[in-house]
């Protein structure tokens, strides 16, 4: 099972804190995102991805505590037992 956690504005948008999905073989973050979207009637991928499917600045995606920009970005593999977090942090002070 893969656990996906939503924080801040994404939690409010999707009205869910977390989602558990069964793991798929050879899946990466980009493919997982498409699967997550199917679980929600509210579109949210446009918050994370641009028109070309690249990552928007703003929301941090973490796999097992590591920012995917320091892993393999959207191609970061996702495996059974992984913890995925979507977190748009506040910038001000």
């Amino acid at each position: 099972m893969i656990r996906i956690q939503f924080y801040s504005l994404l939690r409010l948008l999707l009205k869910e804190e977390k989602l558990d999905l069964p793991a798929c073989t050879d899946e990466n973050i980009e493919q997982l995102l498409q699967r997550v979207q199917k679980h929600f009637s509210t579109p949210f991928l446009h918050k994370l991805l641009d028109d070309q499917g690249g990552l928007h600045a703003g929301t941090i995606i973490m796999v097992n505590r590591r920012n995917i920009l320091h892993l393999e970005s959207l191609e970061t593999p996702v495996r059974d037992g992984d913890l995925i977090a979507f977190f748009p942090p506040g910038a001000g002070g």
Binding site: S8, L9, L55, H56, A57, G58, T59, I60, R65, R66, N67, L69, H70, P88, P89, G90, A91
Partner: peptide, 24 residues
């Protein structure tokens, strides 16, 4: 939306790594 986080420099992941891609 806000957040609070403590890091110990040298032991924790760097803030710059955690918040890579955050939008200013």
């Amino acid at each position: 939306q806000g957040q609070v986080l403590t890091l110990k420099v040298g032991n924790s992941q760097p803030l710059a790594e955690i918040f890579s891609g955050a939008l200013q």
